[in-house]
Design a protein around this nucleic acid. Structure first.
Lengths: 192, 192
DNA sequence: GGGTCAACCAAGCAAGCGCTAGTGTAAACG
DNA sequence: CGTTTACACTAGCGCTTGCTTGGTTGACCC
């Protein structure tokens, strides 16, 4: 087993695992299926990961970490107006969600399969990400760009965004940026 | 096996199965666990359901059917203004989602575990429900209550609503109606 | 009061599961 | 050179899985 995290080999294996987890679901994906996808035998898999759980944790960690990095970058790059920051967050969110799609679908739908330790560790990452969102929402509320309950608004927005993985078609005419703009337009009130 | 659907016994068993599916997930719920919850032995379970898949289909069908009935009732009962109808749909949606919670969580998260035949059958039910939503969204757009792309708006709204099952606490201070009102307020533009 | 039938049980099969043990090998290192 | 290290293999153990089989029970019916 590889104690040093994130060898390039392991990273590639993690990516392939994510694909299978999305296709089949975590429970239905057997170590034999994973091994075959990776081009090795099932026993060899446990050289890279302690157990099946650890593969799941690796997939989710990878996705969440990327989301956090991209969101921070986007916020650093955009202007200071609440409107610009709201757009930036929405775009960054959809960008990771739809490019790094497999990892995020796993994070959203297989979270409950994590054992308590892994969950505790990854909760911190997720909380850090959600805190970013709440800050941006707060700013938008303070500027009067949007109105309503801080808690509810941020949950509704997260719901609308995360739901996209269920229907969004990358082959279709709409880009992630289109979605982000439309969503922000929907919740920001301009004078009628 | 019971060919005539929906004997009272079967309905009760379905309710109990839904609970377990939510707690453990479909794949992790064994027929032995289901049988124990139902107070029978695992073999006896197959007197009521052809196989494990059929239990899942029964759970989802029950939930979706209820949602459809409640939504139609709500629309029939409310006024004709787009605002009233939008409120009515949102309230009805959250009402079923949060009272009939188990069945709906299963429908949302275990849909992919359905075999193709069951999925085809249940898709019709779900489509009928989503059509109701799109009609109401259309009316709201036509009245100028909301703006934007019909397809995107309805997806965003569905996402915001369905996401509630992940964070809503029935013990908390907010009622389902509170959530519905807040959501409608968020997306309807009033003069600033 | 014999026949019917839904509901249940005990026992177990065949397949598949996650994971381990022990070994082979080729490159990297001192 | 000998040793270590990373990565892969074969073989299979112990257990759980969904489901089947053959049979029992008690309520109801003409």
């Amino acid at each position: 087993m590889n104690v040093i995290n994130e060898s390039p080999r392991r990273k590639e294996l993690t990516r392939q695992a994510a694909q299978l987890f999305v296709q089949e679901g975590f429970d239905r994906t057997t170590v034999r299926m994973l091994a075959q996808e990776m081009g090795i035998k099932s026993g060899s898999l446990f050289h890279h990961f302690r157990d099946k759980q650890e593969i799941l944790a690796a997939v989710i960690e990878e996705g969440t970490q990327n989301a956090l990095v991209m969101a921070r970058d986007a916020l650093a790059r955009c202007g200071t107006s609440a409107d610009a920051r709201l757009h930036a967050m929405a775009r960054a969110h959809l960008e990771t969600l739809l490019t790094d799609r497999n990892a995020h679908v796993v994070a959203l739908y297989e979270w409950r399969r994590l054992d308590p330790e892994a969950r505790a560790h990854l909760s911190h990452l997720r909380d850090a990400y959600e805190t970013l969102w709440e800050q941006v929402i707060d700013e938008a509320l303070a500027e009067g760009l949007i109105h309503g309950d801080r808690f509810l608004v941020s949950r509704f927005v997260m719901g609308a965004l995360n739901w996209t993985v269920r229907w969004y078609d990358p082959q279709g005419p709409r880009t992630p940026d289109d979605l982000a703009d439309e969503l922000v337009a929907m919740i920001t009130r301009r004078p009628a």
